[in-house]
Every structure is written in structure tokens, then in C-alpha cells.
Amino acid sequence: MSFLEVDDLHVTFSTEDGVVRAVDGLSFGLEQGRTLGIVGESGSGKSVTSLAVMGLHRSARVNINGRILLDGQELVGASPEAVRRLRGRRMAMIFQDPLTSLHPFYTVGRQIDEAYKVHHPKAGRHEARTRTVEMLRRVGIPQPDRRANDYPHQFSGGMRQRAMIAMALVNDPDLLIADEPTTALDVTVQAQILDLIRDLQQEFGSAVMIITHDLGVVAELADDVLVMYAGKSAETGPAESVFNRPQHPYTWGLLSSVPRMDRERQERLVPITGQPPSLIRVPEGCPFHPRCPYAKLNGTRSFDEVPKLRETGEPGHLVACHLEAEVRARVFREEVRPRL
């Protein structure tokens, strides 16, 4: 069993318009020392998944089913107090916007002290601050003992995200979840933060889960990739395999719709047609079929049968698509690869 094991996870929200199936039968595993990149667009369920792992869904309208095991310990249905004890100690999280994610009224140092002290109740103020300064130094904040007394708004965007990382790592967690950690940052600062996360992961050996919409960010960091669509896993596997031999038409669409810096400029982008689905009325059958150019290649199957994840023939690489292996290989070779 993996260090983090998610098995048939369902997260639904009841709203006035109906039940939102944000995560719908998601399974994956993550080992310590590995990085998993979860990619998807808004509404794919990637952030909902990370919040479910952290036990941060608090609304009475949310319903979580399935299993989430952290180091063998069941989190779904566990007492809130038990999950709280794990949060910040064994699993920690950094968020998209470091400005709004830090409390505006407390100094950066105090907020990190607090994260340390809550799981080290015997630690005095001095010990906590020593640890805080050490962490701030580790994440590359100059003059950390002085900057610890600054307020978040006195930090630059990149510095704030570094402080958030210091706060997340202050208790040496085994699992770090980063939800769009660089989306709010400038490109040159994003490169620094990605570099930092990679270094720290090697140093601390924790399991890292990166949630992002940016395939480039995933490629930079992840050992394994999980592509989500409409709350389900569309495709998952080792990064090398997924990027070099993507199997799902949605992944193809994502890869060919973005203009790329590492390729010659194409005359025309090939967008995915249509709109992302409503999670209240998810299309029958394969949720991607209304936007899939190949949905009709296998009769009506895509229209009425939900595809299950199945082997692609490459180790650990699974895809949820009805296309026959030979058809997929041909389409990829003839139509998709030339576009990538």
C-alpha cells in the first residue's frame, strides 16, 4: 500500500441547483519521496481532492465517501480531532495566493511560530522562533531573523510564497500538498519557487502532491501525473510516459491547445471544442465524449458507458478511454503526434 492511498473517493456538494459531483470515484497512490502532479482545468475536482485529503471540507453540504489512507491511517470518517492532529504535522499544504493565505494582522514569524507550537506544545517562544528563522533561511529569505517580524504585506509575492512553504515545512511533514503554488506569481519568480520545492523535496524526502492547471509546471516537478476531467481520472502514469505517449484524447487536447515555447510556432492552435461540463449534469457515458473528436469511433459506447481506467501496456500508465489500443495508437501516430 502507498504512503498516501486514495481509493474510490467521492466528494459531492448539495446545492440548490442539484448535487455537484466534484470528485467521482478517484483512486491514486503516492509514495514518500515521490511527486504526483494532478492536472486539470477549473471544475475538474483537483482542488476538491486536495482539500478532502487535508480534511478541510467543513461545510455541512459536503459529502465525502471512499477511503483516504495516510500511512495506513483512515482519514475519511475519522474524528475531526484526529485529522486535525495530522494537519500541519504529517501533512501540510500551500495555497495559490500567498497574500490572502497569510493573516494580514500577524507577523510572518508569528504565524510560523504558531504552526510549530501547535504540534510542539512544550516548545517555548524562543525555541519556536529559532525554528522559524531556520526555516525562513532555508527557503531563501534574506535576513530571516529580521524579516520574521515583518507583516505579510511587507513581503514581495515570491517571498510570501517562500514564507508559506517555510510554514508548511516547519514540522517536517511527510506529505506536502501544493495547490497551484505558482499561479499567482510572475514567471521568473515561479521558476525560483519550483526550484525551491524540488530542492526541498529531495532534502526532506516527503511525498509531494502538486495541483495545477499548467502542464509545464507538472513536467518540471512531477514523477507521476494524474490528469483529471469532471471529477474522474482520465489518465495517470509516470510523467515520462504520459508526456511522451499521452493516451487520452483530453490529454491530447490539452497538450496541443497551448502554444509552446519549446516548439516552432504553429500557424493555428487546435483548441478543445465546447465547454467544460457542468458537474451537476455530467454527460452520460464518458464525461469527455461531447468534446471528444474520436467519440464516434467505437459506436455508442462512449455515449452510454463510463470508461474504467485500464492498462495501456506501459508500466503504471492507465487510461480511462473506450478507444481500442490499435485505434488509439493509430490516431496518436497520425493525427496527434504531428501537432505536438
Binding site: 514567471v187 519550483l194 509545464g216 513536467a219 518540471e220 508526456f243 497538450l255 509552446r260 519549446d262
Partner: peptide
Amino acid sequence: LMSAVPVPQAGGR
């Protein structure tokens, strides 16, 4: 700036 843009290829840049 150009070298900082992450690219979607295995292993990144």
C-alpha cells in the same frame, strides 16, 4: 524570461 517558462515535456526543461 523565456528560459523560465516551464514547458510540457517529460522532465521539464
